[in-house]
Amino acid sequence: MSPVIQARALTKRFGDSEVVRGIDFSIPRGSCFGFLGPNGAGKTTTIRMLLGLSPISGGELRLFDLPMPGAGRAIRARIGVVPQMDNLDPDFSVAENLRIFASYFGLGGAEVERRIGELLDFVELRDRAARKVGSLSGGMLRRLTIARALINDPELVVLDEPTTGLDPQVRHLIWGRLRELQRRGKTLLLTTHYMEEAERLCDRLVIMDQGRILEQGSPAELIARHIEPEVVEIRGDGLDALGRQLADTGCRIEPLGDLLYCYAESARPLLDRLEADGCPHPYLHRRANMEDVFLKLTGRELHE
């Protein structure tokens, strides 16, 4: 089956600055595909190009085997979009927002009314159907935005940082709904800078930085490829000296803020040493995760 999205040498320039630098990727049908990267990596610009909201400076982009931007209308009819910032219509109620949005797709009538009921159940907003959008909390607004993105029963749902700024309960609810959508056969594309989110949801990830794709693969593949399987985090002040002392335990040691990250094929020698020496600093032994991969690939300095 042909991929839902195929990008070749996709490029975006604003004046002299190239914010997306010839990236290639393809998104298989039914997958949950994640774009990770620090702020300014080019994730949102890439998504805007996918939706035809940003003219492409170079390269080729096809969705559903149709050319973007040439077939923009037909392509967007098959996509649902959850933008980074909510842009619901403040003049309308919850249900009216869905009804009006359906009309932009040329949809209406009993079929849409049925869908509105289903979608409000899906995002647990049925009892707020008649409320004005202005009276909703941040989490409810985001759930309504997700419901709105599904009004046209899209094959592909694009979510730009879907859970940024939400509390843990809402995040878990949304994660559950996104997995449910994937079970129903929809393709998901999301950007995030929550590594936990990426690891939980995505079958396949690309890590972007400064307009380039640094790496792609499944979360497990990426972790195995780049990071030793075990990590010990030591927290405290003046860890530089400790770091030097531990160099002979066979760990790769990386300081970040008041933390020392020690990566190892086996952390046993290091843990034995810390126990024997009566290490005065608190430490944590864990498995390597996507955050380690992300920090290794995009660097530990601030991206601002």
């Binding site: 909201l53 979009v81 219509d89």
Partner: peptide
């Protein structure tokens, strides 16, 4: 941002 929302449709 009403127009931006509309642009996520056909």
């Amino acid at each position: 941002r009403t127009h931006e929302a509309m642009l996520a449709s056909p």
